[in-house]
Write a protein that binds this DNA or RNA. Structure first.
Lengths: 233, 233
DNA sequence: CTCTGTGAAAACATTCACAGCG
DNA sequence: CGCTGTGAATGTTTTCACAGAG
């Protein structure tokens, strides 16, 4: 087996998750007018130690100012860049059922730079109708539209049975990553990103916390990137 | 600070996540008629090593048969019991917007033993209307209904701004755990379960995988239990 | 020979603790 | 001082590797 190319420094998996939390919290703080934050303050509201926050940020460079903390706005800019959030992502949703429709109507995606550029559904009956002004297209148009609209990410909101097949079609059409809401593991070839969210698993983790009496508070996490050699939720 | 009571043996946090995956995969295999599974076979389809699977299961007892593997049906029963899935859970949804409506219509919850017994929304305008036959009730009825309907879990599907307040109301009403879809960390007192799912964070993890070129495939995970001394997604 | 359960080793992640900057 | 960045220490999770059961 060939050596796996290890990007730059290789980011601890748990750290990658936390980066999103930092970004979300920082945006909130900037809105509150906090122009500067300390690792202690950030860790406090996220339930992490100050050392943890500093270690995570230090993975990508030196963003802080000794004695002063981090400049909120600058740190946001840096993190956005690191996470690929410094540009808009064009997204398509496959499946116009309950979940698909809710996602298409979820305004936050657009505000955060994830623009839903197309919606597909296999049911001929739905083709031509629309969700909040976005037309539902037949699956047969997928490859054509993904290319024409420069769509980089696909969201799977179809039943379990057709999920892998849809994933294959998305990858063949050229998307670079998939967010999967179907309750099964999706396999994609190396180089394609994958994150899964399973609502039932999320509720089950909750039941487990209660039934088993976990006392630690961190842990399960509702979506999981289940990539090439994956774990998934 | 007092010693934290450690339940039974204390389950590795990542293992708790995987338990849900085992259960989901096992159910699928039983349906296919596979009456027996090996740690290797299970690990294979979930992207885990066989040793990992055995270690996880061994945390709770001895379920396997050397030379033979695990009896699918028995293992499912054991895992269901361990995870608190051997009984029905009554759930309420707070927020009748896009996400709330999609969740109420998500049939899989009921099939898996999570029954949505009530839906609440703060907007007076919605009170009285219904979603798939379930009446939307005003927030003022929350405590009364949670008690009367013996609701144990609450799902938060309201905007960020009111999420913590709704969480407090749910806990005060007596729920034992909360599944949060609002994009912020929710604080609950010790003993109350919490898992969060943030769609934007899920997409962001995907963007990160692509932008940063992560090559490992496991990692981020879309929902996170952000309990008392939490981490959250 | 197949496959589990499990100590022991290795890998990984978090926390500590402190030098050094402003 | 307050606060960052970081090696060293500690704690946790995964993998290895094998004894023993069927």
């Amino acid at each position: 087996m060939p050596e796996r190319k290890s990007n730059s420094k290789s980011i601890p998996r748990p750290a990658a998750r936390r980066l999103s939390l930092y970004l979300r919290e920082l945006a909130s703080r900037l809105e509150q007018g906090e122009t500067t934050v300390s690792s202690k303050g950030l860790g406090r509201t996220l339930g992490l130690t100050d050392a943890q926050v500093r270690k995570d940020l230090a993975l990508f460079g030196q963003f802080g100012h000794p004695g002063r903390g981090y400049a909120t706005s600058d740190l946001i800019d840096s993190l956005r860049k690191i996470m690929g959030r410094d540009r808009a992502w064009r997204v398509c949703v496959v499946g116009a059922g309950n979940i698909g429709r809710a996602l298409v109507s979820y305004d936050r995606f657009r505000r955060e730079g994830f623009e839903i550029a197309a919606v597909f559904d296999g049911a001929a009956a739905l083709a031509g109708s629309d969700i909040g002004g976005i037309r539902i297209r037949p699956m047969t148009d997928l490859a054509k539209v993904v290319t024409a609209e420069k769509i980089a990410l696909g969201i799977i909101a179809v039943p379990r049975e057709s999920a892998q097949q849809v994933a294959d079609a998305l990858v063949a059409a050229g998307v670079r990553g998939i967010l999967n809401f179907a309750p099964r593991r999706i396999e994609v070839r190396e180089g394609i990103g994958i994150v899964s969210v399973d609502f039932t698993v999320a509720l089950e983790q909750l039941a487990f916390q209660i039934a088993f009496g976990r006392d630690d508070g961190d842990a399960a996490s509702g979506h999981s990137p289940d990539a090439e050699a994956p774990t998934q939720v």
